[in-house]
Design a protein around this nucleic acid. Sequence first.
DNA 1: TCCAAATAGATGTATATACATCTATTTTCT
DNA 2: AGAAAATAGATGTATATACATCTATTTGGA
Lengths: 133, 133
Amino acid sequence: MCANLRRAARALTQLYDEALRPTGLRATQFTVLQALSLTREVSQRRLGEILAMDSTTLTRTLDILIRHGWVAKRPGKDRRERRLLLAKPGEIRFESALPYWQKVQATVRAQLGNERWDAFESLTNEVTFAVTD
Amino acid sequence: MCANLRRAARALTQLYDEALRPTGLRATQFTVLQALSLTREVSQRRLGEILAMDSTTLTRTLDILIRHGWVAKRPGKDRRERRLLLAKPGEIRFESALPYWQKVQATVRAQLGNERWDAFESLTNEVTFAVTD
DNA sequence: TCCAAATAGATGTATATACATCTATTTTCT
DNA sequence: AGAAAATAGATGTATATACATCTATTTGGA
């Protein structure tokens, strides 16, 4: 099952990366910007929980986004924490990528059909939560 | 969708990696050995098709397996090709890992229930083929 | 109060992943 | 046959990913 899932993730990621290429964002990067645009401001730990991503993985991913000036990192009241937020250039970049993302989403949805799309969304989430709890 | 799928893949991979830790194999490595045990002997290109994995990714993954002596690489009749096959130590390693793999598979299956497990398997495969064709 | 335990991230290291580009070889077309 | 096109992998480079371990800080007892 893990192999099946990883294989599907590889295939789909290639499709999304290809679709997002004109925007200069990888699928993963788009996802992080999207999460930040929804949460406004979060700690790295919390962001990792949302994405089911190890906090130390986020350190590296965020480094890249910060280097590009898309994300800002500020110390929190708890001085162990780093608070992340979308910087203005990141917001602009994210919004300009949205149409490309919507287009590839629509393509895959059409290919799968609405029912299987919805079922797949449910199942991926169930697997995530079944495993992380 | 890509983000959901990748998130589930991360979560499930951590579970499988954890379960396989006593065997010294990562989930991906187990998968490659499994594929080789089923195909007997294949070219790198063909193996990449089976796994929906870029051929150049396989170069690196196989390097590790070859370094451990688990996989052998031989020139094919077509001298551009490399034929891959499971070496004896790889076979032993794979077989000793099988129970650990079966156990984690059973755990996840129990957690999800047979119906959703089967549905998920179908959907991951459909997504893979919808995208790679 | 003060120290042990817990928590948040950073860093070292290893694997996973793919694209662009390169070399070697085979195929195809004239 | 001979050259152009296609194919199989290897290599350079960049990102994605996580674990073990480290430092800095906060929290929870005694």
